[in-house]
């Protein structure tokens, strides 16, 4: 539905389009059922970043403090990319595997139930 506006051509550029981030794209990463982190993290990253770098260099800054983080088995962890099942390729870049600007990555570790098994 269009905005009902006083001007006939109510149109604005998206404030968060890729061009405004100086070469970076935004990637959100959330760990399902681990609410020690109140929300997914937002990372500004070059689209050429490999998934290995995202997972092993970027993510630990925020996630490693969780008591279960070191117990994650990345072989069995599952991923969703923008709500679709996703198999990350570690040596490929974000753009090469369809992780776009403002994409949401979620990972699941069903064997880890969170602090006190409470999803925390």
């Amino acid at each position: 539905m269009p905005v009902v506006a006083i001007t006939p051509d109510y149109k604005f550029e998206a404030k968060d389009r890729f061009e405004n981030f100086h070469g970076n794209q935004i990637v959100y990463v959330g760990w399902d059922h681990h609410l020690m982190f109140c929300a997914a993290f937002a990372y500004p990253l070059p689209p050429t970043t490999t998934f290995a770098d995202l997972r092993d260099k970027v993510m630990p800054e925020g996630f490693a403090v969780h008591p279960e983080y070191s117990k994650i088995n990345w072989e069995t962890a599952t991923w969703l990319l923008d709500n679709e099942p996703f198999k990350p390729q570690l040596d490929k870049s974000l753009e090469e595997q369809g992780i776009g600007h403002k994409s949401l990555l979620r990972f699941q570790t069903p064997e880890l139930k969170g602090y006190k098994n409470a999803g925390v």
Partner: peptide, 30 residues
């Protein structure tokens, strides 16, 4: 927490609210 959170485009609150029928899962809509 070390890092900046994802925000809701409309209310602008960090996306920390959960599914009401699954309260340990963040509610994501897009």
């Amino acid at each position: 927490t070390n890092g900046l959170p994802q925000l809701c485009t409309t209310c602008q609150i960090p996306m920390g609210f959960t599914e009401m029928d699954n309260p340990t899962q963040i509610s994501y809509r897009s």
